[in-house]
């Protein structure tokens, strides 16, 4: 079974490094990015399943980054990390295609749980895609037959 690959995006570097350490101790393979642009760049080169994205960042903010990710990498699951305890920013994120949201300060266990859920969702989705693709292959001989008729 494929192993989950996460990416943390936040402008707080200490948070990134500590959380990365924690996650790797728990056995997760984690990448980090300090900005939306860096995150997009890393998504291009590596297969990342789940992105934990801070809403408020200098430069490109969380919602913009989310839109970009969803546009370029629709299969990547994004969990919004919001400093605002308001539902609004979370709702904005969810509307733009985020899978879930976390409120700061987030517990590491919560983070892992939500990431796992997202990963599961991603896997199910991939499963469906695979199934659909295999059906297509299954179908094709018939189509060939039909064509001959």
């Amino acid at each position: 079974m494929e192993k989950m690959k996460m990416m943390l995006v936040d402008d707080e570097e200490r948070f990134l490094s500590t959380t990365q350490k924690l996650l790797s101790k728990k056995g997760y393979d984690t990448l980090t990015a300090t900005s939306g642009a860096e995150a997009l760049g890393k998504l291009k080169t590596q297969n990342i399943h789940v992105v934990i994205l801070d809403v408020k960042m200098p430069g490109m903010d969380g919602i913009e980054t989310l839109n970009e990710i969803k546009q370029k990498f629709p299969l990547v699951e994004v969990i919004m990390l919001t400093g605002h305890a308001t539902v609004e920013s979370a709702v904005d994120g969810l509307k733009s295609g985020a899978t879930d949201y976390l409120m700061k300060p987030a517990d590491i266990d919560d983070l892992i749980r939500k990431a796992e859920e997202a990963f599961e969702k991603r896997q199910k989705l991939e499963e469906k895609i695979r199934l659909a693709q295999s059906r297509k292959f299954m179908k094709s001989p018939r189509e060939i037959l039909k064509e001959t008729n």
């Binding site: 707080e12 948070f15 500590t18 300060p105």
Partner: peptide, 11 residues
Amino acid sequence: NPLQIIKSEHS
């Protein structure tokens, strides 16, 4: 934000 960091460090 710092709270988040403290929490992570605590964990």
